[in-house]
Simulated assay, not measured.
Amino acid sequence: MEDADSPRTADNADDLAELERRARLVDELGQELDDTNRGLIALHTELEAARRAEARLAAIVASSDDAMISVDPALLVQTWNPGAQRLFGHAQEHVLDHAIGLLMPDAAFDAFRAVAKEIRSHGHADSYQSRWRRTDGTEVDVAVTVSPMRDLDGALIGFATVARDITHQLTAQAELAAARADREVMAERDRIARDLHDMVIQRVFGAGLVLQSITTRITRPDATSRIHAVIDELDATIRELRGTIFNLNQPAQKAASLRSQVLDETTAARDRLGCAPAVEFHGPVDAALTDETAAHLLAALREALSNVARHAHASAVHVAVRAGDELLLEVADNGRGIDPAVTRSSGLTNLRRRAENLGGTFEVIGRSEGGTRLRWCIPLKDPAAPTDPAHA
């Protein structure tokens, strides 16, 4: 038998220790592989959840009726959803990498830049209302929300912009305001009617009774006849007051809308023009204009159509009325163009004077395709605008 301390026995012990070391190493590697596998599974789960969340977000952006637009710090359009195309008419390839000012009149772009500046300075800005422009040149009322986009380090990388069409909302608000005003007017009319009935008529009637009692004590015929004449006047006054009370208790009659009045004017001018004018409206024409402003517009329209009928010899006439911060009337024709003598006509002078008295502008220019374009423009938000200019 070999001695336990022999070299062979020592070699066996070393082999056993090496096997145990390797077994431990295999176990440790197996544990690491298991941990790595669980980590990969968790990472895959997180990535899949992020992918699904991103897909849901993309579906929301793609299906939204609102215009959702992202711009870089230089205000160049980077993304453009289908809602933006439906609202403004631009295809995505026509707006990407272009300034977002493409969608706005100058004043609206100035407002957008001010909001972007506010976000850069303070990190946020309030929503606001504006008027943006479609591809066909018409303008649409929108509620605009601008939010900052930042990278992981918090640096500003652009602005997320949402524009919502609020045309119907503004129309509904104007109609609601008009309905409330009507109710207030009717309440005031009812109060006045009650006061007339309960106070004024009773006093007049009482005065008539006193005069009748006096006539029995007067013997002079001329004095008696004069008193009876006064009594008759008081009776007539009572009848008129009762008629007034009846009218006050009736609902106020609605005046025809400005749109319908413009259409009536253009229809009435058809025979003189020799053609039926095409008419278009932009903005809250009926809601934005006071009765006085509407009267000025209709007078300007009548004069402009009369001028076309007298001088243009046109076969087509186009009328456009735009209401926003200002009221713009455009009358374009395809007639024989501008005659220098016509610019000195009394009709054009009246149009110019009417516009200037209201703080506006007036011009008559030639069209490149032939004919003439008349532009009559006045501000709508100037409370100090003069009234009662010379009538055309």
Rank of each mutant, 00 (worst) to 15 (best):
R322T: 14
T372A: 15
P340W: 13
D198W: 14
E326K: 05
D190A: 15
D264N: 08
L25S: 13
R203V: 06
M1S: 10
G359A: 04
R120N: 10
D3P: 02
E48V: 03
S257P: 13
V262K: 02
G324L: 04
I378A: 01
H282P: 00
P386K: 08
E54C: 00
P221R: 06
V95Q: 05
V317K: 11
G283K: 03
R183W: 08
R113Y: 01
R113I: 02
A207V: 14
H90I: 03
D3G: 02
E139C: 09
T267Y: 04
A385T: 10
Q212T: 04
R373G: 13
T349G: 12
L374Q: 15
L75P: 03
S225H: 07
I227C: 00
R120I: 12
A299K: 05
A229H: 10
R353S: 08
E188R: 03
G39L: 09
L209T: 11
I201W: 10
E292D: 02
T171G: 14
D136Q: 04
D195E: 12
D27E: 08
D72W: 10
E303K: 08
R56E: 09
R164I: 00
L258F: 06
A10M: 09
L43R: 08
F159R: 02
G283N: 03
A160C: 02
L328E: 07
A309D: 01
L380F: 04
R180A: 04
H318Y: 09
D66A: 13
E280Q: 06
A256P: 09
E20A: 06
A288Y: 11
